[in-house]
Nucleic acid binder design. Structure first.
Lengths: 115, 115
DNA sequence: CATTCAAATAACCGAATGGTTTTTTGTCAA
DNA sequence: TTGACAAAAAACCATTCGGTTATTTGAATG
């Protein structure tokens, strides 16, 4: 479904950009859930929840195991690695900022409490 | 603009879910760029690029410094931390998987090359 | 002052998004 | 075999999205 790495990032970030879908992932992180077990947890129709799950599936974040007439969904965590690695490339920028903040705090402490 | 933590995640993940916007961030990671310097790097109109920058700004990923008639954009990396921390909560799931994979590889090596 | 240049604003367009209700399609059980 | 149940599929709707062109605003420059 997803071809290139850029398309994978598109799909994963888009899937994560919705609070209902993030909630679904949180539930699946705890344990696998059937679709009909997932749906009542949200104030929207079961069809809408099913659509969200399909979006998560398309991004590779969720896998579905069909058992008769119930569909068991489980977290597929490796897809999160795509997003994580992209973010890691920027890690040095925010750690730089955090270091600068820490430095400032040290300075303030020294000024407020001169030995 | 962004009120709650959930809204912040919505805005950041949505901003990252577009290849043009990710490219803009990559350029700004290298160094700050004027808007008019940013625009020609993309096969779309300057207005479209300006809109993308506004989306990034709304997510807190980019800050703009107006200097006369040119607008200087720079990366605001702390907003990425929001996304990074959300992903970190799932880190144990994929590292579990990676460990399992590593274990399998070890096993295959042992089987293929019995001492 | 008139011009030029950077950017925003406005108006518009087609496609995608998030939601709905209704209608199939299967599968389990009485 | 006749329901009942789980889920998908279809049709629909309003809003948002990513893009366009044309117009306006505002600062630098001749």
């Amino acid at each position: 479904m997803v071809e290139t790495r850029e398309q994978a990032l598109d799909a994963v970030f888009h899937a994560l950009a919705d609070p209902t879908r993030r909630s679904i992932l949180r539930m699946l992180a705890e344990r696998p859930h059937g679709l009909s077990e997932l749906a009542p947890a949200f104030p929207i129709s079961a069809v809408a929840v099913s659509k969200h799950v399909r979006t998560l599936e398309a991004a590779g974040l969720v896998a579905r195991q069909v058992q008769g007439r119930s569909h068991l969904c489980r977290l597929e965590p490796m897809a999160l690695l795509t997003a994580h690695r992209w973010l890691q490339a920027y890690e040095r920028f925010w750690s730089q900022r955090l270091d600068a903040l820490e430095g400032l705090l040290e300075e303030m402490k020294r000024d407020a409490d001169p030995a």
